[in-house]
Design a protein around this nucleic acid. Structure first.
Lengths: 200, 200, 200, 200
DNA sequence: GATGAATGAGGTTTCATTCAT
DNA sequence: AATGAATGAAACCTCATTCAT
């Protein structure tokens, strides 16, 4: 959304120009943000991120007007990868339900390593609307596809929407890491198991 | 020493005594807090709660030194009721697993109507330690009992601890209410279903 | 301390009468205040004193409208004793200057054991005016007498006023006790030594 | 808005650069703080200082994270000057004892004009540790040097430590200014006189 | 474009003092 | 007379966000 798409823009650039500098700067920013996010969570003070990047705070606001924009940018690659893994898993797995389980695991693995991200994903603070929307837009369709496939195969009960499932999985990941006795993976596994069409 | 005083004091007191007033006031406070908690969540500013109750902020601090104390007081009755319902359900339900499901539903019903409580329950901020402890102390044993019964009856897979389950359920309840499309009950149902010993 | 504990106090009272009760109460208060002053300084919260005495805060305000009143009452005996020691020392000492030194030592001994009193004695907060006045009224004349005697005997340089000297000694006592490396007695000794008519 | 000031800045600079502005601002802050310190003492509310300077409170915290930092900054020049005057006086004075007296006078002159500083200098509140340390680190060695010189010259009794002397002098300066009848200078003079080796 | 100084709302907590019971 | 609950002013400190340079 904020930079103009899949990347067609780079093909034959010759002049390094301001543009390149800016890009480098932006990437420095993303690296710094990622680092700080790991250290202090995705709600870390802007100042800390700026300091880590060695730039002024204004620079961050220029490139990423809202925190959501920054978070999205930092995790875009991983979200994309996750989204793209959906169809692939569907194709390669023994069953749609298995594919769903594996895909969800990818999502969980992503979330549990992102200190504070899961929490912010369910925040209803309007500042995070964009973030919310991005994750949903990108992942819900994939999840829907997997869910539909499993439903069609008769493996799962119907009536569970992808949106809900994603939200639930996201929620289960909140607080992981701060409590060694809490293992979201295990619970998510139960959740997915619960989707199974029941024997009785 | 300070009240013996004149001596008699007892039997037929007409004066309602400060004590009674204070007690009433405390209840006013709890009502006010409950109201504000619904409106703005359990992390609402102390000042707001005081205003709602029509008292000074100091009054709140007098009765409830920490926010955790206030939250516990506000919800104590419901938590107790929930805890006590466990054994009852176990006795009256068709199966331990069914009892577990029903009990969890009670817990979910409780949580989803408490704006922000679920979120705070998993917060690792030290200010909420007491709150955390209270919920855990009161509910985990009950859950354990239900879980054990179900395990013994061979209805569920073993290896899931009550603590984890409660945490998971609590997490699933975060953000309920702020999103009409998100229904924790449904997901919790899946989670509990997932506990079932699998057919394969 | 404040309730008689061992029970010895019962000797032979027949008619406790309101008056006596009130007196007892007042004394209980003074004991409690003294205790708390030692523990937390003379600026300890009113509530603490009330708690120590086992009475309500209102009772303290009734008997001692201002903190200064309370402080004065607590230390009155000792201040009186100090004041009265002046003439006695003058009569019994080898020289007026020696008497002065001994008397000042009494004052210092009194102050250094009263956590925070010296500090409050020089506070210009209007709340302490009475306190200020009491100490001054009671002790400055005594000091003047000693000073005059010493001056008359040609032992000290003239031109130092009792008020100043008392203030100075009081100031030197501030903070004693909180710093093992600071010994007001030694400095006061220098001050008094400095009063001596210089040889040159 | 915030300073207008003496006007010297007009020379020829066109772009005073943020840095320069900030520096000026910092000085504005120090001036304001000094003013407020005179008016209300060194423990004046941060908000008052900010108001006096015409800046937000955050600005104060940016430049001076703790109150001790601010106080030190406000008085640094004078403390340094005082410290540096020590050796100079020693070199130029008739005797080490005279030098000591003059140096102490400088210190007293400094303190008596700093409303509340002397009081805070003996506070044992941990917030002022830095302040305490600064004054001690800077001045005690100088005092030691003067004291040692005088002792070596046989002018004073030994056994008085610079730390104690400084503390004592500081204490004597507490409350100066709020009482026209109290003149610390006179008392300090006595103290120093008292150091003299006694004739007897 | 970049910088980072400045702003100031926002929330917390403490206690002296009053006054209804 | 005594009680102690209630009041609420005061101060503190933090950060997201803006904007002059």
């Amino acid at each position: 959304m904020n930079d103009g798409g899949k990347g067609g823009d780079g093909t034959g650039r010759a002049a390094p120009s301001k543009r390149k500098d800016a890009r480098r700067n932006k990437e420095t920013l993303l690296d710094a943000a990622a680092t700080v996010f790991v250290r202090s969570g995705v709600e870390a003070p802007v100042r800390d991120i700026a300091a880590e990047a060695g730039v002024g705070m204004g620079t961050i606001y220029r490139h990423f007007p809202t925190r959501a924009d920054l978070i999205i940018a930092v995790y875009r690659h991983q979200v994309e990868a996750c989204a793209e893994a959906g169809p692939a898993l569907l194709a390669s797995s023994a069953s749609p339900h298995a594919a769903l389980g594996q895909w969800i695991n990818l999502f969980v693995d992503f979330l549990v390593t992102k200190h504070g991200l899961a929490a912010v994903l369910q925040s209803d603070s309007s500042g995070f609307d964009t973030l919310h929307a991005y994750f949903l837009d990108r992942l819900v369709p994939v999840c829907t596809q997997l869910l539909d496939a499993a439903a069609e195969a008769g493996e799962i009960r119907s009536g569970v929407e992808a949106y809900q499932l994603m939200r639930g999985v996201g929620n289960l990941c909140i607080g992981a890491g701060s409590d060694a006795h809490y293992d979201p993976r295990r619970l998510v596994e139960l959740l997915i198991a619960g989707l199974r069409r029941q024997p009785d």
